[in-house]
């Protein structure tokens, strides 16, 4: 029914619980109820990708999900990407290659790239471009981001082969 519901989910390896009305968008729930403002709202119709998070390990738009749908799910937001204060190789590479300027699309861009490297650890440039086309950036012209993903992919592969 339309009354608020209890929602219990795991975000960035931590169980969290709150209540939300069924119509509350997951992105608003993350930002307003769980205080995770790293996930950004850019279009609320699934095109810009700024709100992209990982839902059960897979990239998804948090503006096209209801908070109630995430009950029981495991989510990763940009706040959960760096482990123990150490930047993820993608974050490092974004910095090196000037893959961000205003930083507003960056959370969605990072998690989209993360998902790409999970399903395709050695993407070529065309595959990187196709994957990143899921997120709009208006600052960088994308080339720095593409280079960053190439670099991070290489480093992640090297780390695994070691």
């Amino acid at each position: 029914m339309s009354e608020s519901r209890r929602i219990r989910l795991k975000v960035n390896c931590e169980w969290r619980e709150s209540r939300a009305a069924p119509r509350k968008l997951l992105v608003d729930f993350l930002r307003e109820d769980l205080g995770l403002t790293g996930t950004h709202v850019g279009c609320e119709h699934g095109i810009c990708g700024a709100c992209t998070i990982l839902v059960n390990g897979e990239a998804a738009r948090s503006c096209l999900m209801l908070a109630v749908q995430a009950d029981g799910a495991e989510l990763t937001t940009v706040e959960g990407l760096a482990a123990h204060g150490k930047l993820h190789p993608l974050q490092e590479a974004f910095r090196e290659h000037h893959g961000l300027q205003c930083g507003f699309c960056t959370p969605g861009m990072l998690l989209t790239a993360y998902d790409l490297l999970c399903v395709n650890p050695a993407p070529d440039e065309e595959e990187i471009r196709a994957a990143l086309s899921a997120v709009l950036c208006r600052c960088t012209g994308y080339l720095g981001i593409i280079e960053a993903v190439k670099t991070a992919a290489r480093r992640l592969r090297e780390a695994i082969s070691k």
Binding site: G46, V55, A59, A60, R61, L64, M65, T112, D115, A131
Partner: peptide, 9 residues
């Protein structure tokens, strides 16, 4: 069909 993050759902 859309992009990978929309195909997730």
């Amino acid at each position: 069909v859309g992009h990978l993050p929309t195909r997730t759902r």
